[in-house]
């Protein structure tokens, strides 16, 4: 981005002047060597396949029929955009992502505020709270499916029966809600950790000053803490969105997109089109559309990260 290499971070200081003298071509090449293996491998395994997907999206091909590859312009895009199931998958992905992110950030902020206070066994409670995020997602999905949601033996129905509600056949009657519930359980710790880091990076002097000035706890939280937390909440929401849009394990293992199309999201839709129906052209077009959508969220995410990054630098 900048012509003379800018040294950021605390490492700058004394070293910066020596480095900002224009390096020779050989010197520049030598500097690049440590970066190259990682960069080349990443390009080969991400950008080359992505170009492949773009290529397929403009060509007609079904692996089962073994047709000759034929350039078809935007026909695959037209097909996929006209496909009712694709539109359902887009809508489901939006609903799933928005609900999970909203619920988990709200819970995450609340829990972070709670954990920022001193109490007996705080580190144990923190350890308990982060565990859902560590549990292998495939395990979490199967555990919730069979031990929590089961209409007969499930613990959710047992808890509800204690207060006289139910029984509910969670996965058949409330499929999307069930998935969101399980995902919120999984992602709340992630949000909590990021917000908690934000809370603990607050300047204690400012909080003490507010207290001395007689500000009430709630006012302090709203006027000082919340604005400080904004960027951390944004980061949590954006990173969370990027990962939750990609949700595959839970759908594959709990509902397989069903009942009907009720929980069919984009990753599972594309997976099915690719590996079950072998509709290469259409699923590639769907993949390109998903990447385009992700880029929109990613631009915002990168901006937030860049801001945090500037502050650090």
């Amino acid at each position: 981005m900048s012509a003379p290499p800018v040294v950021d971070g605390r490492a700058g200081g004394a070293a910066a002047p020596a480095r900002s003298t224009t390096p020779t071509a050989v010197e520049r090449l030598k500097r690049r060597i440590p970066l190259l293996p990682a960069l080349v491998l990443t390009i080969v395994l991400t950008q080359v396949p992505l170009l492949g997907t773009v290529y397929y999206s403009f060509h007609s091909r079904n692996l089962l029929r073994g047709d000759a590859i034929e350039f078809v312009w935007f026909a695959n895009y037209a097909d996929i955009l006209g496909d009712e199931h694709f539109r359902t998958a887009v809508l489901n992905t939006v609903v799933l992502t928005a609900s999970t992110v909203t619920l988990s950030i709200a819970l995450g902020v609340a829990l972070a505020v709670l954990l920022d206070k001193a109490f007996l066994g705080r580190s144990v409670v923190r350890t308990l709270l982060i565990t859902p995020f560590l549990v292998m997602p495939a395990v979490a999905a199967l555990l919730w499916k069979h031990a929590m949601f089961d209409p007969v033996y499930g613990l959710l129905n047992w808890f509800l029966s204690l207060v006289g509600v139910g029984p509910i056949d969670w996965i058949s009657e409330l499929p999307m809600f069930s998935i969101v519930l399980m995902m919120t359980w999984q992602w709340t710790p992630f949000m909590m950790l990021i917000v908690l880091a934000g809370l603990q990076s607050q300047s204690p002097e400012v909080l003490e000053a507010a207290k001395v000035d007689g500000a009430r706890a709630f006012a302090t939280f709203r006027r000082i803490t919340l604005p400080h937390l904004r960027r951390f909440i944004e980061l949590g929401i954006l990173l969370g969105s990027i990962f939750i849009v990609q949700t595959f394990d839970a759908i594959f293992l709990i509902t397989q997109g069903g009942p009907g199309q009720a929980t069919m999201n984009l990753p599972y839709f594309i997976y099915q089109r690719t590996f079950r129906a072998f509709e290469v052209g259409e699923s590639a077009a769907a993949g390109v559309i998903v990447v385009a959508g992700t880029i929109v969220i990613a631009i915002f995410a990168l901006r937030v990260i860049l801001n945090l990054f500037r502050e650090e630098g």
Partner: peptide, 22 residues
């Protein structure tokens, strides 16, 4: 900086978009 942001942008790409060529 471009290289750094290139690296994370790859982490943000949905795996499902590259699975078939891979």
């Amino acid at each position: 900086k471009d290289a750094l942001f290139f690296f994370i942008s790859t982490r943000m790409m949905p795996p499902v978009a590259i699975i078939l060529p891979l």
